[in-house]
């Protein structure tokens, strides 16, 4: 029996993953070390372990998603959990049911964990106060997208060896981006230096209070950094009728990353993108497909990181 090592170990400090803000550095490092083991599982001929065979997970997507939803579903299936999927577009939400009612009805069917994406900031926190199940926030409005930040930091750690001391610039629509906020929390907790870069209209006021630098010139930002995370312009979240920048073409000229700019930098930086990419707007195709881009590694790591999150949260729910 290998019990000795087990007794020295600790689990996650949280019951839910609502945001990176609630996690400690030790939590994040634990998630990463477990993700390493799950990455190995995903390289096996049989990419599946039976750990969660008695756990049922509901994926509640009140907002559209391809990558995140597939990634979560694969992560759950690779852990042998039973999975039920729900998309708001084809559900009773359209008939006027409230969020708590919808979720309670699903929980009445004996679901242990809920992975939820919702358009309202704070939806996951709200839900965690009303239901018993463990909740994983898969994006709540402009608030947080914790698993994306974890997989981004994990990908940086994989590519550069560690996150500590690295300089990361997040470029684009910071105001409307939950990825940006979660990334800032996560990278800061891991000891990275963070800068945000974009037009004044897309950078929230007082963002310096989170301990980040602000830069409006893309070239200066790229010269400073080791890693550039190029965000998408969140057209669907921008207020109708408000012009944050004159045109996509002008945005692209000022804040788009193309091969010529990338090659003119004094060092080789790592390029990231959380997807979906608007090719030709925030980055050009030749940059997205270049050897400096780790965009597809991010997607691959997403499954392992989500497996680690679900596995560690399930660990905190005792079998009753």
């Amino acid at each position: 029996m290998n019990t000795m090592k087990v007794t020295e170990q600790r689990g996650l400090s949280v019951k839910h993953l609502l945001g990176i803000k609630d996690l400690t550095r030790a939590d994040i490092e634990l998630i990463f070390s477990q993700a390493d083991e799950f990455k190995e599982v995903l390289d096996r001929p049989i990419k599946k372990v039976p750990s969660l065979r008695d756990v049922t997970v509901a994926n509640l997507f009140f907002e559209n998603s391809t990558r995140t939803r597939l990634s979560f579903e694969l992560a759950e299936k690779r852990l042998s959990a039973d999975v039920v999927n729900f998309a708001a577009s084809s559900s009773s939400v359209k008939k006027g049911e409230t969020l708590v009612d919808t979720v309670n009805n699903i929980l009445a069917m004996k679901v242990d964990m809920v992975v939820m994406r919702h358009a309202s900031p704070g939806a996951a926190v709200f839900l965690s106060r009303h239901i018993e199940a463990s909740i994983v926030n898969a994006g709540d409005g402009t608030h947080e997208h914790p698993t994306q930040a974890l997989l981004d930091a994990y990908s940086i750690r994989e590519k550069l060896g560690s996150v500590e001391g690295k300089k990361v610039v997040i470029v684009g629509d910071i105001t409307h981006s939950r990825v940006a906020i979660s990334n800032i929390y996560c990278l800061k907790k891991l000891g990275a230096e963070v800068m945000v870069c974009g037009p004044t209209t897309l950078i929230p006021k007082h963002i310096e209070s989170l301990g980040v630098k602000v830069e409006h010139n893309l070239r200066s930002a790229l010269e400073w950094c080791d890693v550039a995370n190029m965000l998408r312009i969140q057209l669907e979240r921008q207020d109708a009728g408000v012009a944050y920048f004159p045109s996509l073409r002008e945005y692209s000229m000022q804040y788009g990353l193309d091969k010529a700019l990338l090659n003119s930098l004094s060092k080789k930086i790592v390029v990231m993108h959380p997807g979906p990419i608007n090719r030709g707007v925030e980055i050009t195709s030749d940059v997205a497909d270049s050897d400096q881009s780790i965009i597809l590694d991010q997607v691959e790591n997403g499954v392992a990181v989500r497996m680690a999150v679900i596995y560690l949260l399930a660990q905190n729910m005792k079998r009753g």
């Binding site: 087990v6 170990q9 634990l30």
Partner: peptide, 9 residues
């Protein structure tokens, strides 16, 4: 898993 007192890492 989920029975053991301590987490299984």
């Amino acid at each position: 898993f989920r029975i053991h007192d301590k987490p299984l890492i």
